[in-house]
Each structure stands twice: as C-alpha cells, then as structure tokens.
Design a protein around this nucleic acid. Structure first.
Length: 589
RNA sequence: GGUCCCAUAGUAGAAUGGAUACUACGAAUGCCUCCGGAGCAUUAGAUUCAGGUUCGAUUCCUGAUGGGACCA
C-alpha cells in the first residue's frame, strides 16, 4: 500500500481515538520546500472536532503517529500544519525494490478499452502547428492511458471528401499542367495545398471582377464561376463519376504519402483509420431511429431537428430538408460504427476547443438515443496555438507549417550541439539522429508542458529553448547519468543502500516514489502536462543531488550504492515518462 | 442576439481551498586542476478590477473590464 494511504489511515484512527468521532477525511500534501518534513497534514478543518487550537490538535495527532512507531519518524508543528518526516527506510526499501525495474510506473491489468481519436486532418492542405499540438496530445494521452492500465486503440478519421477537396482538385486541373510530387519535387501534401491556395486566389479574382461589373458582394461570392464548377465537381464525385473519382484518388494518394512522412517524423501512429468518404453516409438510419423514439422532430420543410433547450442549449439541425447530412449526422453514425467495431468502454475525441459546443450536442444526442457507450465519450478539448501576430489563418498564409518547423528545430539542435562540441567520435548518421531527436524533443516538450485546455503562445523566433524547462534539459540529465553509470563498474549493484539520507536524496527518492501516482493523475486529468512537469521536477532534483554529493568518488559504499541506484531509477523513470510524451532518450549529446 | 472558455513577474508556463504564490527565459552575481557547465547556487520582479462565501481564496460565487471561440 502507498505510504500516504498508510499515514492517512493512521491519522483517521488517531482522530477517532482522540476526539471520539468517526473520521475518514485525512489527506496529505507534500511538505513545502522551506519546512522540514516529507508530508504535511493540515489540521485547521479539524479544530471544530477537537475543540482545541490548531497547534494543540496538530501536536496531539503528531504524538499519536510517532507512538505508532512506523512509518512516521518525527514531526513538527507550524501553526496548523503538521509536518511529518517518514522513516528513511521507507525510501531505501522502495529503492531496493524498484531500482532495477524497467517497467516502473506502468500499471498492469486492464481498466477497459478506450479509443483515442486524434489528428483527423483534411486532405487539402499540409499539417501545421495546430495539428502538431493535436497529434502530440493525442499520441501522448493514448500512451498515458496505456500506462495507466487501459487497452487503447488510436484512431484517425481522415476528412478526405467534400467541397474543400474539390477546390484543390479543380485548381490542379486548371493550373497544374499535370504537375506531380515527382515532377515538382514537392511533398504531396504541400503540392495539393499549393493548389488549394491557388483556388482561393482565382476565386477572389473572379469575385473582384463580378463586383466591378456591379454585382452585389453576397451574390458574387456565390456566383463565381470557379465556385460553381467546384460544386459541380462535388456532385460528380458523389454520383461516382469515374474521372473525378480517379483524380480524387490520385491527389489524396499524394497527400497520404506526405502525411505519413510527417507522422513518422513526429513519431505518432494509429491502429485504425476511418475515411470520411466511407462514413459520410452513416448516421441517417440513427436519425430515423431517433425520429421514431421521439428524440428528434421534423419541421414542415422536412428538415430534422433536436430540441436541446431543456439542457440549456439550442435547437440543432441534424438532417437537411433535402435529406443530406450535416457534420453531426456523420459523427452520430461514426460513433456507432466505432462502438460496433471495437466495443470500447470509452471514446476520446482529441479536437480543438472551437468544437466544444458540437461535442456537447453530440454526446447529448447519443445519450438520448440510449446508446450505452454515451457516458464514456469525452471531448479532450485543447486551446489554440497563437502566434505573436495573432491567430493562424491558412488563407492568409500566417500558418507555421509542420514540416518547416520540424526542420527548423533540427537545424537549431545542430547548431547548439556543434557549439558545445561534446560529440566527438560520433559518425554522421549518429549525429543526424541526435539533432533530430533533440529538435523533436524540444518541440514536443514545449507544447506538451502546457495544460491542454489553455491557449498557448508560440513565438517561432524565440520560443523554443534548449535551456531551462525544456526537453533538452531532461535529455541532458539522462545522458549525464548514462555517462556516469558507464564509468561506475558493477560492484555497487549488490551493496545494500545506506539509510543515512541527505535532503537532496530524500527529495529525489520521494519524487521517484510518486511517479506511479503521477501517471494515474495525468490519466484522470487527460493531461500530458502533468507528466512533463514531473519530468522537470525529477530532473531538477536529481541535478541538485548530483551537484551537492559525489557519486563515483563517494568512499562510503552504502552511500555510493544508494546514489547510483537512485541514478539508475531516475534515468529509467525519465525514460518511461518521456516515452509517455513521445520523447525518445539519447544516450549521448 | 444567445451560449461557452480564458485572465498569474518584462516574457512563457506551475500551483486537489492552505504556510513567505512555484519554475523557466530574459537581467545581475558566483561555481569547471574534481563524476558531462545543455548543469548548480544566489538576487531583483507577479495573482486584471470591485464585491461575496471561508479560520484561510490564484483557486469557489456575483458583477465589471479585457481577450478568444461557438450557435442562429
């Protein structure tokens, strides 16, 4: 059992004995840095029970705990704060048991099956910074849930059809002269994206022309010939026109190849792909079912709606009057499909917070349709990534392209590394791997350390550091431990750690002790940021230990064993924790 | 028009209702004849405003201001 729980129960018991009231509320916190102790119990709320001042109450409980003998060694009272120091054997025992455990922190056993849907790109343009946040979050939360004991299916629902795809297709037909990724040397997704931008240019030019001919703006926007042609193309696509479908296949193929490259570089992967071209007709049968059950209602014009005013929301259209789907229709159908195929207990959608309302409505609908899995659906809603200049807008060209950014990170990592000049003896391939790992780690850490719910600011010019609270800092700590251990031999491995602990040793050990708990709380909060913060705390506390105490040069064998085993467990834990963030360690840097 | 989200040093970020609000970048200062200085130690600097609940509020409630998103 966890040491905190042991102490908490002892406190509960003590309170009952002291004040004659049943009590089970005891909760511990980590003791604040500036005070002596490992755990702190706040007694203010208890004074009503004890009918004595906070000092006396804390004192009385402290005495009870030390009288129990274990695990509390001693205590001190500051105002209403009861600071407890646990017996060092708690830490050394924990270390002896786990220092060599490669899977430290991973829960075994299954809590059920969960699907994490993330990425979900459109196939008309390349990935950008916003997608990067989505991909990193999705991948990471999936890994966190695995570590917490879930069976996880990573899914990607690709938005591969619709008017926006037709825009790229049409522009390519018109202006492309048969250009291909091979002929142009452009990555497939970038090539298609280029034509999406060209469409927009041509469209705007046509609107201008119509405006100068005296047409009102609204009408011009709807009557531009290129747009009409695109709509015609979509109709052909839906009717199964050979040539259109062929073009669509070809261009989507280019995009997929491009995406695959970016996904690989980002280190994200998927177990299941869904394509909207297959799923966009789903959901209509559920609309019919809902009409029958009285969940939906039909308006006079034939459109189908749901009334959510009782839930504080609005009326929402679920099927157009011509019988065609809207987005939510497809999502209803896809949710059902996912469940039929995978029998997941929970389903997580990693999607930006601009769709909060959409998912609120979707989940409500699934509940009203009586779907048993509805209560397991969750929208992992994350904030936008802002640039110093404001919001990213693809049409205005103010996006940070994912591939460019990755290359930029690689370049910076290279410059930094060369500057420090510690990589003697590594060959070109190894160096290139190193730059890539460092650059990606810096980027991932930068993005994942922020609470997903919050908007974050990304300054391309100066945002990503290699010093301070960063990925490279964590990797550096790991690489340094690695280097020390290589020089350490192996005699220490069989030595029992001494129990005379320095404060920086206790601090590091108690951090390590908390790792499994941290994984669970990251899972409960759907927040990789919890893991990222943990990595920083652990690395910092170990670095302090490293600076304050000798490892290899320590002559007391018990102390040396303690420190080296702590080093091993620290390295392991950093590696595991970074793994949950999708960050790979480097052995040297 | 309606709904929802956000507000912490110069900057980027932390903090289940608890102690003197924690880190990092940037600024200033120290530490490599000694296990890797991408490190460590020290200093200066902050909770948008006005109320309320509480022994105690960055955290909860109400309102204002500012920013963002969505729905029709």
């Amino acid at each position: 059992m966890n040491i905190e729980q042991v102490i908490a129960e002892q406190i509960n018991k003590s309170v009952e004995e002291l004040y004659g009231q049943p009590y089970n509320q005891a909760k511990l916190e980590k003791t604040n840095k500036d005070f002596e102790g490992d755990y702190t119990f706040v007694v203010f709320p208890l004074t009503r029970l004890s009918r004595t001042g906070p000092q006396e109450t804390a004192q009385a409980i402290g005495e009870k705990l030390t009288a129990a003998g274990f695990p509390v060694l001693k205590f001190n009272v500051v105002k209403g704060f009861l600071n407890l120091t646990v017996n060092p054997t708690v830490w050394t025992g924990f270390l002896s048991e786990n220092w060599n455990n490669i899977h430290f922190g991973a829960s075994s056993g299954t809590k059920g099956k969960v699907m994490v849907e993330y990425s979900s790109p459109n196939t008309n343009k390349p990935l950008h910074l916003g997608h990067i946040r989505n991909n990193l979050l999705g991948y990471s939360i999936a890994e966190v849930m695995k570590a917490a004991g879930y069976e996880v299916v990573k899914a990607n629902l690709i938005n591969d059809r619709g008017i926006h795809i037709c825009k790229s297709m049409l522009a390519w037909q018109r202006f492309g002269n048969g250009e291909t990724p091979e002929s142009s040397g452009l990555k497939g997704d970038h090539l298609v994206g280029k034509y999406y931008v060209q469409f927009d240019k041509a469209y705007k030019a046509e609107i201008e022309e119509l405006l100068s001919g005296g047409m009102p703006k609204d009408e011009a926007e709807q009557q531009a010939p290129i747009l009409l042609e695109t709509q015609e193309m979509l109709r052909k696509w839906e009717a199964g026109d050979q040539a259109t479908i062929e073009l669509w296949r070809t261009m989507n193929g280019w995009v997929y190849k491009g995406f695959e490259h970016t996904y690989n570089r980002l280190g994200v992967n998927f177990d299941q792909f869904y394509y909207e071209s297959n799923t966009y007709t789903l959901g209509k049968d559920l609309i019919a079912e809902g009409l029958e059950k009285g969940v939906f209602y039909r308006k006079d014009d034939g459109s189908v709606w749901i009334d959510l005013t009782a839930e504080g929301l609005d009326h929402k259209l679920v099927l157009r009057k011509d019988g065609t789907s809207v987005y939510i229709t497809q999502d209803i159908g896809t949710a059902d499909l996912k469940y039929r195929e995978h029998k997941t207990d929970r389903s997580i959608y990693v999607v930006g917070n601009e769709q909060d309302y959409h998912f609120k409505v979707l989940f409500l609908i699934m509940q009203k349709l009586g779907r048993p899995y509805a209560k397991g659906m969750y929208h992992l809603s994350y904030g936008m990534v802002d640039l110093p200049s404001g919001k990213m807008k693809s049409r205005e060209g103010t996006v940070v392209d994912a591939d460019d950014l990755l290359s930029e990170m690689h370049k910076t990592a290279k410059e930094k590394t060369i500057e420090l000049g510690k990589t003697e003896g590594m060959n070109d391939a190894e160096l290139d791997n190193l730059y890539e790992s460092l650059g990606i780690a810096a980027l991932k850490f930068f993005i994942l350390k922020v609470d997903p719910k919050k908007r974050m600011l990304f300054n391309p010019a100066e945002s990503i550091d290699f010093q301070g609270d960063t990925g490279p800092f964590v990797l550096y700590t790991y690489a340094r431990i690695n280097s020390v251990l290589k020089q350490a031999g192996s005699e220490w491995q069989s030595v029992v750690p001494g129990t005379d602990l320095h404060s920086s040793e206790t601090e590091t050990l108690s951090h390590l002790y908390n790792y499994p708990k941290t994984v669970l709380s990251a899972c409960n909060d759907y927040s990789p940021a919890v893991i990222a913060q943990y990595c920083l705390d652990l690395a910092k506390s170990f670095n302090r230990l490293y600076n304050e105490l000798p490892l290899l040069r320590e002559t007391d064998q018990g102390k040396k064993a303690l420190r080296l085993k702590t080093a091993v467990l620290t390295a392991n834990t950093l590696k595991n924790a970074c793994g949950l963030l999708g960050i790979k360690m480097v052995e040297r840097m």
